[in-house]
């Protein structure tokens, strides 16, 4: 469905007056999602998770420079094609109701999302009704304004907005933020349902525990790069995980020992070599020379010279 290859995003910003500095936020990233699959992207804040979503929607700020290749349904994604696909084939399930227009009724906005994604005028009312029924939203909710929605209901409305059309790739940005475990479980359950109907879901979150509840695969982000792609089953006990950063993240969970194997990674602007090497106790001269590629090891992928 989606194939990201060697994606790099950098920003130019100003230090003083007109002096510029370039900051590389994502460096040679690879990512692949198949239909019917939930791919979770986990990592600490500032690792470039949201940037990836913004790049896939083509809504990066104007000072961003992007290179690399993106393929959607085996065809290259160009800026023009992206504008066409955004909202119709690729849809975002946003973080919070602040992404909705505060002055428009919820029902109107869901209907508009349907129209924008290519549903015809006549078909729209029944499609919207079905979307509301599917996410257990009462008919009256259509007449509410976004501020009237409670946390869990807001998630359902946002999911309805993204799925009312015919989008095949859904980007869920931090869908469990600010929700307690019951509401979070419900939101994640909806994503699983969507994947089971053949859609591809990219689940962006900082919360591994939540992601593992529904994801098939997990891509771990560290310092603007994907360091490991693992099956959800690999996160179980010890030994199956490949990259030291993934292990550190996993073992730092309160339920798994609450251990601090390393300090949080600071994204640095060093240019070559493994981005993780300053935090790694296995590093040698090779790590400083070039960035390791993703290698296949027992069923998963890891970006490390030594794993």
């Amino acid at each position: 469905m989606l194939d990201v290859h060697d994606l790099s995003i950098s920003f130019s910003s100003y230090t003083l007056g007109l002096k510029k500095k370039e900051v590389c936020a994502i460096r040679s990233l690879d990512l692949r999602i198949a239909p019917g699959e939930i791919m979770a992207v986990v990592g600490q804040s500032g690792a470039g998770k949201s940037l990836l979503a913004h790049a896939l929607l083509g809504i990066l700020p104007p000072n961003a420079k992007v290179s690399g290749s993106l393929f959607f349904k085996s065809r290259p994604l160009t800026a023009e094609r992206l504008t066409d696909l955004r909202g119709s084939q690729i849809a975002l399930i946003p973080q919070s109701v602040t992404y909705l227009n505060p002055l428009l009724r919820v029902g109107t906005q869901v209907a508009r999302a349907a129209r924008l994604s290519g549903v015809s005028r006549d078909e729209t009312p029944p499609v919207v009704r079905r979307a509301f029924a599917r996410y257990l939203l009462d008919k009256e909710v259509a007449d509410w304004f976004p501020f009237q929605l409670s946390g869990g209901m807001a998630r359902r409305v946002l999911t309805a907005t993204a799925t009312v059309g015919k989008a095949d790739l859904l980007l869920a940005d931090e869908p469990t933020n600010g929700l307690d475990s019951a509401a979070a479980g419900e939101a994640l359950g909806h994503l699983r349902e969507l994947a089971d109907t053949g859609k591809a879901v990219l689940l962006i979150t900082h919360d591994i525990k939540a992601a593992l509840q529904v994801a098939d695969k997990v891509t771990v982000f560290c310092a603007g790069n994907s360091v490991e792609v693992a099956a959800a089953e690999d996160f179980n006990g010890h030994g199956r995980l490949r990259h030291p950063y993934t292990k550190a993240l996993w073992n730092a969970l309160p339920a798994n020992g609450f251990r601090m194997a390393m300090p949080p990674v600071i994204t640095s602007s060093q240019n070559d070599g493994c981005l993780f090497r300053l935090y790694c106790h296995k590093q040698d001269s090779l790590c400083g020379k070039r960035l390791p590629g993703l290698r296949n090891t027992n069923g998963g992928w890891v970006r490390c010279h030594h794993a």
């Binding site: 060697d6 130019s12 100003y14 007109l18 510029k20 790049a55 083509g58 990066l60 104007p62 000072n63 961003a64 420079k65 992007v66 290179s67 690399g68 290749s69 993106l70 290259p76 994604l77 160009t78 800026a79």
Partner: peptide, 20 residues
Amino acid sequence: MTTNLFSRSTPWDLRTRTLM
């Protein structure tokens, strides 16, 4: 295949343009 599909080529960037 590596393409540079998203880069916008502007002779001046935003801040220079604003100041100008």
